[in-house]
Simulated scan of single mutants.
Amino acid sequence: MSDVAERRNYDLRDEIKAYWSERAATFDLSPGHEIFSEEERSAWHRLFLRHLGRGDGRTALDLASGTGVISHLLDDLGFKVTGLDWAEPMLERARGKAKDRKRTIAFQMGDAENTMEPDDHYDIIVNRHLVWTLVDPAAAFAEWLRVLKPGGLVLIVDGDFVNTNALERFFGKLSAWGQRAGILRPDTPMHSREMMETHRSILSRVYFANGARAEAVVDLLRNAGFTDIEVDTDLGEIHRMQARNWNFFKGLARKSQHRYAIRASKPLPAA
Rank of each mutant, 00 (worst) to 15 (best):
M1L: 06
M1N: 06
D3H: 00
V4T: 15
A5D: 15
A5T: 12
R7I: 06
R13N: 14
E15D: 12
E15I: 01
I16W: 08
K17T: 15
Y19A: 08
S21C: 07
E22G: 07
E22R: 03
R23D: 06
D28P: 07
S30G: 10
S30M: 08
G32C: 10
F36S: 15
F36H: 14
S37M: 08
E39K: 01
S42D: 14
W44Y: 09
L47C: 11
G53D: 15
G55N: 10
G55K: 01
R58G: 11
D62E: 12
A64F: 02
V69R: 03
L73E: 15
D76W: 05
D76K: 01
L77G: 04
G78H: 07
K80W: 06
T82P: 02
T82V: 06
G83N: 06
G83I: 03
L84S: 06
W86E: 14
P89V: 01
M90W: 01
M90N: 10
L91I: 08
R93I: 09
R95Y: 05
R95A: 09
K97R: 12
A98C: 09
R103G: 04
T104Y: 00
I105N: 12
A106C: 04
F107S: 07
Q108V: 09
Q108S: 13
A112S: 11
M116V: 07
E117G: 07
D119H: 01
D120V: 00
D120Q: 10
D120K: 00
I125V: 11
V131F: 02
V135P: 10
V135A: 13
P137E: 09
A138R: 06
A138C: 01
A138K: 03
F141Y: 11
A142E: 15
E143W: 00
W144G: 08
R146W: 04
L148R: 03
L148K: 03
P150D: 14
G152P: 09
L153N: 09
L155F: 03
I156S: 14
V157H: 05
G159D: 12
N163L: 01
N163I: 00
N165K: 00
L167E: 15
F170D: 12
F170V: 06
L174F: 10
L174G: 09
G178S: 03
Q179S: 05
Q179H: 02
R180T: 05
R180E: 10
G182C: 04
I183L: 07
R185E: 14
R185S: 10
R185L: 04
D187C: 03
D187A: 12
P189W: 01
H199D: 13
R200C: 02
S201A: 07
I202P: 03
R205P: 11
A209L: 00
N210D: 15
G211K: 03
A214S: 15
E215G: 07
E215F: 00
V218Y: 07
R222G: 11
N223L: 00
A224K: 04
G225F: 00
V231D: 14
D232M: 00
D232V: 00
G236T: 14
E237N: 05
H239N: 11
M241H: 14
N245V: 02
F249W: 12
L252M: 10
L252Y: 01
L252I: 04
L252K: 09
K255I: 02
H258P: 02
R259V: 12
R259E: 14
I262D: 13
R263T: 13
S265E: 12
K266Q: 07
